[in-house]
Design a protein around this nucleic acid. Structure first.
Lengths: 194, 194
DNA sequence: GCCCGCTGTTCCGTTTACGGAACGATCGTC
DNA sequence: GACGATCGTTCCGTAAACGGAACAGCGGGC
C-alpha cells in the first residue's frame, strides 16, 4: 500500500484555460435560464445586473465577479457550484420560470439517458413558453389538480386531474394553467445521452 | 405525500450579503494557505496574482474575479468549491507546502472533533514552518521511511521509521526531513469542535 | 548596534468588468 | 406595410479589481 512513486505525481488541480471555463459556465447559465423559460433581458432585470453583463457572461467573453455570479445564480435558484459545474443539480432544488415552479425530487442516471423527476405547480391563469431543449428530450406530465394546457407551442394538449401527457420537447413549448385552479402535477424529463 | 402548501414556500437560495461571503471565503483561503505553511507573498507569487489582490481577497475587502479565484485555488490544490465553502475537502485532495506534500485519505466527522488522515511525504533535506492552528488542534505522525524532525518550532522532536510523534499544533511548528532519504509518513490531524 | 530578508498592508496608475443606452432583428397586432 | 414590444448584442463612460511599488514591523546574522 506504500508503493507510490517517491516523486509524488503532480496532482494539482489542472489549471484550465480561463476562456474554456468561462465559456462552459456561460453555456450552463444559458441552459438554466432557458429551462426556466426566461429571456436574457428578464433574468438580467430580475437579478439586478446589466444586460450587457449577462450577455457577456453567457457568451464567455467576460471574467465575471463573484458578486455577479451570486446575483444570477440566486435568481436562477441554484447554488453557485451548479453554475460552475462542480456540483450536479441536487434534489430539493427549486426552479422557477415566469409561471412554472418545480421542485426536483429525484435524478436517475441510466446508461442511455438521465431522468429528472419534478413536483410542478402552475398558478391559476399563469402561462409561460420555454425554448426547445436538445434533440430527443421528452417531457411526461401527470396532472393531479387543475387543468394544464401544455406541449409544443403550436399544438398544445390539455390535461385535467388524473390525465397524462407526453411530448418531445426539442421544440419551443408552453405551459398554461387553465381555469381558476392552481395546477399540481409531476413532470418527468428524459435527457437521452448524445 | 402531496400535502405541501399550495403557495410554494420561496426556497430560492437566500441571497447573503456580499460582504459576509467574501469575508468567509477570505478566511477559508487564509486557512488553506496557512495549513500549507505558505506566506501570503509566496502564494501570491506562485499563483501569479498581486500581493495586494491576495491581501484584499483574504480580508474580504474585494469582490474577486473568477480568474483570480481560479489562480489561487489551483495553487492551493483545491477545487474552487472548497474555497467557496460549497464542498468539503474531498479525499484525494493533495495539499502542498514548500516542503510537505500530503494527500487527504479520509475524513472522520465525530461529535466533538473532526479528524483528517493524510499520507505525507517530505523530500530529503526540505523543511517548512507552519503557523499555529486553532486552539486544541493536535497532530499525530507515524514515520515509515526517512527521519523527520517535527513539532513546535522551538522544541521539535525527531522520529525515524516506525516511530510516532504527537504534539499540540496551536503553536507555530516545523517539518524537516533529516538525512538523505525522503520522509514518508501518515499524518492525523484532530480538530476539536469549538 | 546595523543590515538584510521577509512578513502583510496600503497607495496608486492601469486595466477591465460593470450598468445604461443605443442598436438591428424578430416577432404580433392593427 | 407601419408600428410597438421585446429579443440579444454592441458601444461607452464609470467604478472597481488588478499588479507593482512603497511602506512599517519583525526576526536572524554578523
Amino acid at each position: 500500500m506504500l508503493h507510490d512513486s517517491p516523486m509524488e505525481s503532480d496532482s494539482q488541480t489542472p489549471r484550465p484555460a480561463l476562456e474554456s471555463n468561462t465559456h462552459d459556465i456561460g453555456l450552463r447559465i444559458r441552459q438554466l435560464r432557458e429551462e426556466r423559460g426566461m429571456s436574457l433581458s428578464e433574468l438580467a432585470r430580475r437579478a439586478g445586473v446589466g444586460k450587457a453583463t449577462l450577455s457577456g457572461l453567457e457568451n464567455g467573453t467576460r471574467n465575471p465577479t463573484l458578486e455577479t455570479l451570486w446575483s444570477v445564480t440566486a435568481e436562477l435558484g441554484v447554488p453557485l457550484a451548479v453554475a460552475l459545474g462542480t456540483a450536479p443539480a441536487a434534489p430539493g432544488t427549486t426552479i422557477r420560470g415566469t409561471a412554472v415552479a418545480a421542485v426536483l425530487l429525484e435524478v436517475f442516471e441510466e446508461r442511455e439517458a438521465t431522468y429528472e423527476l419534478y413536483r410542478m405547480t402552475v398558478p391559476a391563469g399563469a402561462a409561460q413558453t420555454s425554448p426547445a431543449h436538445h434533440r430527443g428530450v421528452t417531457e411526461h406530465i401527470t396532472v393531479f389538480a387543475g387543468t394544464l394546457r401544455v406541449g409544443p407551442a403550436d399544438r398544445p394538449l390539455t390535461a385535467g386531474p388524473g390525465e397524462h401527457i407526453s411530448w418531445v420537447s426539442d421544440v419551443p413549448h408552453s405551459y398554461e394553467a387553465l381555469g381558476t385552479q392552481d395546477v399540481h402535477a409531476t413532470l418527468l424529463i428524459r435527457y437521452p445521452h448524445r
